[in-house]
Design a protein around this nucleic acid. Structure first.
Lengths: 231, 231
DNA sequence: CGCGGCTTTGATGTTCATCAAGTAAAGTGG
DNA sequence: CCACTTTACTTGATGAACATCAAAGCCGCG
């Protein structure tokens, strides 16, 4: 973790209108005064499963993974989250400690403030709370739907699904640098690393994608969509 | 759906202290005046995926399943919910229509009131909203953890997991009537119906359980626990 | 009493995890 | 900067877990 703390202002932050729109100026000033921003590089752990939750965090920039370690020591990736996706929102209200480890998979910056302040803001501003409810509901619904969606697919379908997600939702480009290792993709979709590689190699052989290390180029996105749907 | 509407009072309801404890008397009176209670028998659909959400519902008594139909027409059970588990809480804030179908799997009764009233209560009472946040967070976390937990297990482990859940968490008894058909268990744990049956038959042959139709008797709960953990 | 849905068991093929072994890439310490 | 180690990636072979197909028994219900 880079301990550089930026004294940035929240004036132009995306969250200003997204989340804090319901706060009166005095409360916004409280957030402004207390909040800190920290930068992370790829691989940095932002918060660790089991750690006590003391701060409310939100991702300002970058890309992170939410993961957990099972009792048997296996690693599972729950979700990939972007700004506005509300990392840390899930567990904040249900438990005193993080249920998931949050790790930067791209250079990221996170804003945070004391959890006590969050409680105070909620208690004081019902509309702010309503907004939080909506965001959290959205994120939970998405994670649940995604995991159910992926459960019914075979490997090829799951891989296609993931590639499309990065292409269409995250990078909005046909060509991109995959921020996950093969092993991490395996942890995300619940299959073995070897079979992730095999499926990717098949896609390459079939001319669906061009692969160069972590560089992905979606050549036949129509076919990939079809595989994601049917596979 | 049984259209019998009981004019019950909320005085002695479990939710009184669980959820509505933060409401001032005037608001509680609003709820009391508006809320309706409806009874359902096993098999009744309480709300259907895609239907417009107009009311906030909470399960007062009984047992329900949350399910969804995939694009390919397959049925998946997301979760089994009991009173205080907040059926319908998940989607209420993220979407205008239900993402899941809710079906009674035991005689159930549901209380509800207009969604507008809920919005008003939240907006007016931050602490009530905070409570909702906590409950929703809890439910979402549980569903997510459960589905991740089950994903790493083989069939026998998944079946053991489900049997234990009914025995330990839901009925709190070694012997109980399973409220799900074999097919529904299959939809819950994501395997074929035939293999659910095979696993149950194995458990029976191995002397772990006694099975008579939907009647389950947990004979060697220690072994079943072991299978749930390791399998 | 016959139809349809649920349950059960067996047989077969597919998908996938695992093991093994080798190559490439990325650190690491001298 | 190079030998060394480690980690990520890749391909093949094998067997286990599981879906699917088929067939038959059971039960409730009209």
């Amino acid at each position: 973790m880079q301990d550089v703390i930026y004294p940035t202002s929240c004036e132009k932050c995306i969250y200003r209108s997204y989340l804090f729109s319901e706060l009166p100026n005095e409360d916004l000033a409280l957030v402004n005064a207390q909040k800190r921003e920290v930068s992370f590089i790829k691989g940095d752990v932002i918060s660790r499963q089991g750690d006590k939750i003391e701060r409310f965090m939100y991702l300002k920039e970058g890309l992170v993974k939410l993961s957990r370690t099972t009792d048997s020591g296996r690693e599972q990736i729950i979700s990939i989250a972007r700004p506005l996706d509300f990392i840390g929102l899930l567990t904040v209200f249900s438990d005193k400690s993080f249920k998931y480890t949050i790790t930067a998979i791209e250079p990221s910056s996170v804003c945070f403030f004391e959890i006590d302040l969050l409680q105070k803001l909620i208690s004081k501003n019902g509309d702010f709370a309503a907004l939080l409810l909506e965001k959290m509901s959205l994120m939970a619904d998405n994670i649940i739907s995604e995991s159910q969606e992926i459960r019914i697919k075979h490997i090829r379908g799951r891989i296609a699904h993931v590639l499309l997600d990065f292409s269409e939702n995250i990078y909005k480009a046909d060509s991109y640098e995959l921020p996950l290792s093969r092993k991490e993709i395996a942890e995300l979709i619940g299959v073995s690393t070897e079979n992730v590689i095999r499926a990717l190699s098949e896609f390459r052989r079939d001319g669906l994608v061009r692969i160069n290390g972590s560089k992905i180029e979606m050549l036949r996105i129509d076919m990939i969509r079809k595989i994601a749907q049917l596979g």
